[in-house]
Simulated scan of single mutants.
Amino acid sequence: MHSIETERLIIRPLQPKDHDDLQAIILDPEVVKYTRYRDTTTPESFTKIFEEHFLTETKYTFGIEDKLSRHIIGFYEFHPSKDTGILTYALGQSAWGHGYVAEVGRAMMKYGFTELNFQRIEAHYANLNPRSGRVMSKMGMRDLGEVEVFTFPTGGVVHVLAYELTKDDWLNGKQEQAV
């Protein structure tokens, strides 16, 4: 994939030089506590994922670079499942609350539908993180409700909720109505 630029960000394949920036994000338990990376807790386990996933899955994984600082402030990725792209994203805490995920999301929806030819893009979030649900709504996605319930080993129940956007809805401009 080539780089995609938005007003404030550059979305691009990750490079070896991004290791430390992305490691700081993924090893922050507050950032990843509701993502598939919540069990990545050591520099060694991060480096393995970085080398085997983030650097090799360049069609599906992207760094989010701040144009001003030129540092990676987060990541965005698709996990393909048949004709659906299931997305995961995270931003470092200093990037929270600036509207970056919706900004990146709109650009990545276009990429997912036009370049990867997904017919559907889906995203999941934990009920304990309602801000993610609001961002998904801002990206024009439709609320699917609860899809899973799981219990943390330390206790506590998490309800996983989902949103989706179909290619047809995207082509018909329904995502624009949500913005």
Rank of each mutant, 00 (worst) to 15 (best):
V32Q: 01
P130S: 07
M136Q: 12
E30F: 12
F152P: 04
F75E: 01
L55I: 03
G140E: 03
L14A: 04
T47P: 05
G97Y: 04
Y60I: 03
H53Y: 14
G105H: 02
F50D: 00
Y163F: 13
S81Q: 15
A107K: 05
V157S: 12
F75Y: 08
E176D: 15
P16Y: 06
L171H: 14
T88P: 10
T41K: 15
E44N: 11
D21K: 00
T6K: 05
A178D: 07
E7A: 10
K33V: 07
G105P: 03
L55R: 00
L14R: 00
R131D: 12
E164C: 07
P153M: 05
S3E: 14
E176S: 13
L22W: 03
K67H: 12
P16E: 08
Y125R: 08
K48P: 10
H19P: 02
P13L: 03
G133R: 07
I72L: 11
R106K: 15
D18W: 01
R120W: 14
R70I: 04
K82S: 14
G105C: 04
L68D: 15
E57F: 09
I11P: 00
P80W: 03
V101T: 06
H53N: 12
Y76F: 15
T166V: 03
Y60F: 10
A90P: 03
S45A: 09
V31H: 00
M1T: 08
L27E: 00
Y37K: 02
I10P: 02
D28R: 05
T42K: 06
T40Q: 04
K174S: 05
W96T: 06
L128V: 13
F75P: 01
L116Y: 04
F113S: 01
F118W: 06
E77R: 06
F62Q: 00
H53E: 13
L87W: 11
G92L: 03
R12W: 02
Y163C: 04
W170I: 00
Q177S: 13
D39A: 13
D18A: 02
K138Q: 11
E44K: 09
K138G: 04
A126W: 07
T35I: 05
Y37W: 09
L144I: 09
Y76S: 02
R134G: 12
E146H: 10
H53W: 11
D39H: 15
R12I: 04
W170N: 00
L9D: 01
D168T: 15
S3V: 07
L68I: 14
I10A: 09
H98T: 11
H159Y: 10
Q23A: 07
Q175V: 10
H2I: 11
N127P: 13
V149W: 08
E51H: 12
I121Q: 04
